[in-house]
Design a protein around this nucleic acid. Structure first.
Lengths: 154, 154
DNA sequence: TACTGATAGTCAGCATACTGAGCAATATCG
DNA sequence: CGATATTGCTCAGTATGCTGACTATCAGTA
């Protein structure tokens, strides 16, 4: 009888659950109110100023319907801006505000600390191996979800 | 500049995202409408007939407030029953119905197929190593989430 | 036994995620 | 050019997951 705990799907869920809890705890202790999803979106906007929502979704593998709400909240907190594009009036160009940049700078240590904590049961070598295997499994399954990773076109 | 894709938290999210999509696709193709969370709950009730909701939550590491809705849906589909306990009038005893048992039997091949697909990018050895590392990381982080795994007391 | 604390379950509220539908704008092709 | 297809975004609806609060009940103790 196969136990739930021997199923990769169940382990995936539990690891993610812990990862989110650790992230929120570290970031919260540092005095910030931001989710992992919001952080990834904000950091990606900063690295690609002026990108549109679909491109952002592709870069971090979010569903396009999820991005809408995430950006709503970043905008509402004053960390990002959403402007109509002039080249394509359907699209919204995204920018990080000055306060968003300040927040990103100050929050980074807590984010990095969270990444260490969620691997604290593993040696450095095991941690790297886990990352490698996750990468490989994800690459093979990328197209199986509605929100696959998409590279930017040059 | 550390990329999102080098952060274990982000990889955890993506792997889980793919795992859920694969599960829903396989189970849906087999003609069933069940989520990974519902499946784990139903299978665990079947393996521990008469258990209460808090114990169930501990066995699969769900939050107790999440369990309520999951069981609501299992009951609504006619797959499980919720009865008041006679020993403790606060508690609800959970059972799998006959149809729930039939469903579990018939759905198992699709569930196992999903587990294989989500590891299809890895060799058998790599798949086992990924499971081992996830187990180890999860064990170390178990107490960091609000819904840790709890063993049953004998 | 009365008081205190802990426990089982639910609920409201918020934040992902997804399905499917729809609108507006752009791209493509006959 | 005009019909059609595609694309960017949003919205309604559903299902996790969590925080925090609340009720009912139970357990332990003075």
């Amino acid at each position: 009888m196969k136990d739930n705990n021997d199923m990769p799907g169940h382990l995936a869920r539990r690891f993610q659950q812990i990862a989110v809890a650790v992230f929120l705890a570290e970031v919260g202790d540092a005095g910030f109110d931001m989710t992992p999803v919001q952080y990834a979106a904000l950091a990606t906007i900063k690295a690609n100023p002026g990108l549109d929502q679909v491109t952002l979704a592709g870069l971090i593998a979010y569903d396009r319907t999820t991005i809408t709400g995430v950006i709503d909240r970043l905008v509402q907190k004053g960390l990002a801006e959403r402007r109509a594009s002039r080249r394509d009036r359907r699209a919204r160009e995204l920018e990080v505000t000055d306060e968003g940049k300040r927040t990103l700078r100050k929050i980074t240590p807590a984010v990095e600390s969270a990444q260490r904590i969620m691997l604290r049961g593993l040696s450095a070598k095991e941690g790297e191996e886990l990352m490698r295997l996750l990468h490989k499994a994800i690459a093979a399954g990328n197209e199986l979800s509605r929100a696959p990773l998409r590279e930017v076109q040059a």
